[in-house]
Nucleic acid binder design. Sequence first.
DNA 1: TCGAACGATACAACCGGTTGCACAAATACG
DNA 2: CGTATTTGTGCAACCGGTTGTATCGTTCGA
Lengths: 346, 346
Amino acid sequence: MSTTLQDIADMLKLSKSTVSRALSGDPRVAEDTRARVASLARHMGYTPNPTARALATRRTNTIGLAVPWAPRSLSDPFYLEFLGAAGDEAMRSGYSLFLSTPDGDGDGAVRAHAELADPRRIDGMILTEPRANDERITLLHSVGLPFVVLGVVPDPSVSWISGDNTAGARDAVDYLIALGHTSIACITGPPDQTASDARFEGYRLAMSSAGLPMDRNIIEAGDFTQSGGYSAMHAIIGPRRIPSAVFACNDVMALGATRALREAGLAIPADVSVVGFDGISMAEYVDPPLATVKQPIQELGRMAVQVLIGRMSGEGGPAHCILPVQFQPRDSVGPPRLWANAVDRR
Amino acid sequence: MSTTLQDIADMLKLSKSTVSRALSGDPRVAEDTRARVASLARHMGYTPNPTARALATRRTNTIGLAVPWAPRSLSDPFYLEFLGAAGDEAMRSGYSLFLSTPDGDGDGAVRAHAELADPRRIDGMILTEPRANDERITLLHSVGLPFVVLGVVPDPSVSWISGDNTAGARDAVDYLIALGHTSIACITGPPDQTASDARFEGYRLAMSSAGLPMDRNIIEAGDFTQSGGYSAMHAIIGPRRIPSAVFACNDVMALGATRALREAGLAIPADVSVVGFDGISMAEYVDPPLATVKQPIQELGRMAVQVLIGRMSGEGGPAHCILPVQFQPRDSVGPPRLWANAVDRR
DNA sequence: TCGAACGATACAACCGGTTGCACAAATACG
DNA sequence: CGTATTTGTGCAACCGGTTGTATCGTTCGA
């Protein structure tokens, strides 16, 4: 058994309340007493029992992080990096990170969250992959648990944090357009996911500002997984026209799309340019290196924790943070084959 | 506030001890009473306070999972998949997963673990990336906290679980040899990491069984990261002979090596074949698809939790589990350029 | 019919902290 | 010098469960 307040109190012939106050820096205890307590506590290697403290204070010093288990997160390095940074920051701030990977997408997920979002278990929660009308958010609101969402949420009373999806996507597509591309495919994420929607919006803005038509034949929904990107790309180049460039709403889908293109005998970037989104470190190492919109993933993780801690302390209103992202051109993009043609058309 | 035992007791004019016993299925409470308690508990949506229970029972129902923060884990999808499966299995078994990402490699890591490995906080721990004489293991032993290691540990009193590193590596290298390769480079992990050592041993066995010499010039230590694989490959093909194949001790290093080879103007697999280890899902989507030794990553995660739960319940001795792995040939491997030559030499 | 055995429940201590309040001793004040 | 105030500490309740033991009323056997 580890040492307790009572142990220290006994040795110094004090009461445990005094010891507790001494250690917490209560001004009512004498300086001399505090010093003796502190010294003995150090010598005996005293650390407070987190459970007992949690029971008494009703604060667990634990943050819940909900990462959807299937199907995306399994394959997306984005989450690992986010999670690592969040865990690091949480620990630095004296919090534990309680990881939950609720199964399923619909009702199952909501039910799972109902169990997890227990104020007796965690002080606050980080929610990922918000959907358009996310019942999990309603749930968290009704439970009264502080939370932060990774991704934009329309409800102004909700704190959220996100990379600048629309601007990033727009920059990427603008770049393609500047190179002369006019037929640019888009592989989106699941339709009701806000990150996907915002990135698609960036694509739409870039296209329309350039006066380019939106061609439904080369816009296809993926699911943020490699295989989803692969299938979507296949669907596009199957019966339809082959675009000269593809913007995928995340990196792993871009990799899936790349594979589909290769299998169709198309060279990258000679025949088709490919751009992703996220900036996972892997993107730099594939062939050809994948152009992508770099998100400050670790900063997102750290900031999510910081914002959450702010919310938990009850200070101020909800925070809405959009972190800048940066388009990173790499060898997966190049000018379209019919360069002269495209220039003429402008 | 949520409902407590006392609330239920008051409504039914019982004592909270009786309510507690009724809910825990103690045979001493009357069937009728049990039914009334159960019904009311359901109606009031009672769930026990995990903290209070933890304090009373001295079991937190929480498992700690230590994933080293830097530099590897950040970029290796292997860990995400492992972690997801472990989390899922833990939740299924009624445990929470407490994620810790201790900083640093040496003393820092040990000190960090000393804080984390607190029996008052977690019931058991999953340790990853064991080293040859890992002080963290000594520490866990001395604290008396049940734990399971992901990776082989020589100490027979330690429970561990691992993919069959040596056999997997050997299969992969055997395959290369069967294709006619004789000059096979190896990029290892950090020298004292058991997984790396075991994979290198598989390489060694395959080479020596085939009567091939071990050429120190084409054996280089990496650090299990992409950039490590990249640098190691550069170091090999710099002033030295260019091998006809490379076995990298994990997938992300294989990707880094691939990039270095490309930059040197070498084609894969025409000039150099590349094989990785782990079987991350990304490997299938790069160009060319990366041959790799597939580990049952999710099963490793699930089993780590199961074995740990077994250890925590105190039943039986330490478990040592080696899960089979499978070499998966893909387009990143092919026969060596000088095929006829190699055949002659056999 | 009486004491023993038994079944069902209540009481109370305990886990290890936090915290409101009481109380004693020391100091201030008039 | 007596009273009011400050200062430092202890007592005890509380957080919400678990669990050893006491107590109650009933039923049983002799």
